[in-house]
Design a protein around this nucleic acid. Structure first.
Lengths: 244, 244
DNA sequence: TAGTGGTCTAGACCACACT
DNA sequence: GTGTGGTCTAGACCACTAA
């Protein structure tokens, strides 16, 4: 096997990450075909001059992505089936950019609102607290894809319309020093309202894909609650599940 | 803190799992409230008589579930927001049982079919190979919830109608020694056909939630491909995402 | 019996955040 | 400076699988 890796031992990139990146690349490129066996942990570690826990961690990263399967007494094998893009904590803006479409935004509403019971619960703030309310239509290559409603806690009051037209909401939050860490999503479907049909340029009473999400930053605090609906002919969700 | 744990050091349950279970329970019960800080890794390890890597692994399990957030130099804190049930690689049957509804099945079709191009690709078998085709209506408390189509590879030909009426498909597969390990899902929405409307007892042209899934066993082989549609008023998907 | 992954130890050094 | 999590080492023993 030609996996001679030039490991950067003094750089800031963890060794396990360098190894896992290399393995993932080998799988995605077909160098390690579906069903093939990976070199065992101990041998791989010796060949790379790494301890076994480090090699294990590298392999575990790929297992968690659903590309490898491990069996005790057997070995580690590449999962069959075409590989789809990995699922991450991204925004619609990122998704569209990654698929080489040009995103744009039509800002419908940007105003301060006091939190009702539902919003207060989702954002873990007191009912009646001030929040920032945003309603947008997101477009890809000038075709409307989604109608998005967001509520943000008080500290984000002050976000400008120009920010939201030029960038995605997550970009704006990142530029204010917020790092998203955890998101809890709920995905469903329903019929469109007449207003949504007009905004999304679809027939009345069409089927819509819906997603509610609460996102938390790296301190565990809720920083965004959103209710979104998508044109199902233009957007869907991919999820990879791995049993532990 | 009252986290005196009786660790079973000779039993088959890993120590890190015993610890992570105890921590998760403390969070879900409110013993560790949202925003509170967890005892640091080294101290927790000393108190429990465990090495630091073992304690780290226990904590990491909970972080991966989205209940804890770690920050270098700061500590480990409980994420805010009400905790929803964890997302796992489960079947609709399991979901319904867990919510204390009584599942049942109306078997529409059970027959052998040769794989067309799409099925062959999803199951990683040759086009024209024999496969088992199943079409069912799943009900909860005698209300129809979903119409499910499944294709299984050749070796499962021989599954009996009685198996599918009495148990979920995943139960049947487990009883034949198959362990699901990885699943790749695609979630979307569309309008119902007239036949689906009748089967699900909903209005014509209703919105449906759809899910396509390919599942792989612990050897990485595709064992099931399914196309399902759900009544959106009775079923939806929950997903927790954790940024790494 | 030989080989594999699963778990665990007892340290070490580093990067980062707060005081 | 002090305390935190992030990474890494060099072993050890065990459980499971296959020949």
């Amino acid at each position: 096997m030609g996996m001679f890796m030039d490991l950067e031992r003094s750089g800031p990139i963890p060794l396990y990450f360098q190894v896992s990146q290399r393995i993932e690349k080998a799988i995605l490129s077909g160098e390690l075909p579906a069903g093939s066996r990976l070199e065992n942990e101990v041998a791989l570690g010796q060949r790379l001059g790494l301890s076994r826990p480090t090699v294990r961690r590298a392999i575990q990263e790929i297992v968690d992505k659903g590309l490898l399967v491990r069996r005790r007494g057997i070995g580690t094998q590449v999962v069959h089936g075409q590989v789809t893009r990995k699922v991450e904590l991204t925004s619609l803006y990122d998704d569209l950019t990654n698929t080489h479409k040009v995103p744009s935004t039509h800002l419908l509403t940007l105003e301060n609102r006091v939190a009702d019971a539902k919003t207060a619960e989702r954002l873990s703030v007191a009912e009646g607290s001030p929040t920032l309310y945003i309603r947008r239509v997101r477009l890809a290559d000038n075709v409307p894809v989604a109608v998005m409603e967001n509520w943000l806690p008080e500290e984000f009051i002050g976000i400008e319309p120009s920010d939201l037209v030029a960038h995605g909401l997550y970009q704006v939050l990142r530029s204010r020093g917020v790092t998203m860490r955890v998101a809890r999503q709920h995905i469903g479907a329903r019929k469109s309202t007449n207003e949504e049909s007009a905004l999304l340029e679809i027939e009345k009473n069409s089927a819509l894909l819906t997603m509610d999400r609460t996102a938390f930053d790296n301190s565990g605090r809720a920083v965004e609650f959103g209710q979104h609906c998508y044109r199902p002919d233009l957007y869907s969700f991919e999820v990879t599940l791995v049993e532990k």
